[in-house]
Design a protein around this nucleic acid. Structure first.
Ligand SMILES: [Mn+2]
Ligand SMILES: [Mn+2]
Ligand SMILES: [Zn+2]
Ligand SMILES: [Zn+2]
Lengths: 144, 144
DNA sequence: AATCTAATTGAAAACATTTTTCAATAAGGA
DNA sequence: TCCTTATTGAAAAATGTTTTCAATTAGATT
């Protein structure tokens, strides 16, 4: 079941702007800001307003199909997500981001913090940062 | 060693705006946006420009003394941080946020993801969300 | 295929946030 | 007290987001 199918299944129309935003995000390896999405589509001769980009991202976020990815060096951007429990790992060199499956690894941490704080934890935000294989090479092999 | 001391120790001047922003953040239990900081200080009859709030937050962030706290329902805000490895837990009811000590709990997760992705992980962003003790009461006891 | 209707769009304006600029100020050392 | 220069504030510019509303169009109905 692909993103467009999910959209229409939930009773939302398959408009041209929505199709274009989704297709662009499907191809992108980096999180994109609304402006970046708008510009990229303009260059592909897709006429659509920046407003529609915002509205599409809002809708897709509601449906859980896109995720905000934070990157200290960049404005927050959006990426398509597969459904289910997962997080993102972001390259500090080229800013490519990838999903990884969430696990129960932080369950113990959550239990600990619940005890310490008396909070009832129901959600979490987790991202990893580092260097992707390509950027590791550039970093070490850079001298010669 | 308090925040003001650290500031001046690093060769930064202890200006009135900086003192005021730090003191306000020290008292606050919620992450504050630049605007909120500015308004709060105006009401305390501290004359300072919004620009100085931005500049102070930028400096304190560089020094690692403040941390950005994300809250899906709010604009990102700033909180003072103690030095060292820690993260924040945010109440989805009253938006109060608290630090908790970072641990090696996610080391295994990081190892796993490094193997899966061939990334070299060097940093991470982790926040927990839930209900603080007070808001748990309001939620359960709310009926009568 | 033509018609209908409400969801969706785009353009513009309004609103909000952040950064830049630069002359005036003031912190802290001499 | 004087000096130097980091820092400030006001204004403008730049950037980012939301609202409004008439025009369009996706998809259902005939
Ligand atoms: Mn997880
Ligand atoms: Mn940690
Ligand atoms: Zn990379
Ligand atoms: Zn609470």
């Amino acid at each position: 079941m692909d993103y467009k199918a999910i959209l229409s299944q939930k009773g939302h129309r398959l408009s041209e702007p929505r199709k274009q935003v989704i297709e662009l995000l499907q191809q992108s390896k980096v999180a994109l800001t609304p402006q970046q999405i708008h510009q990229a589509l303009q260059q592909k001769n897709c006429k659509l307003g920046l407003v529609s980009v915002y509205r599409t991202l809002e809708l897709l976020t509601e449906l859980g199909l896109v995720t905000v990815v934070y990157d200290p060096q960049l404005n927050p951007g959006y990426m398509l997500s597969t459904l289910g429990h997962h997080h993102h790992i972001v390259c500090q060199g080229c800013h490519k981001a990838f999903e990884f499956a969430g696990s129960n690894d932080i369950d113990q941490l959550i239990k600990r913090v619940e005890k310490e704080t008396s909070f009832q934890v129901s959600d979490h935000l987790l991202q990893l940062f580092g260097l992707c294989p390509d950027c590791q090479q550039k970093a070490t092999g850079g001298g010669f």
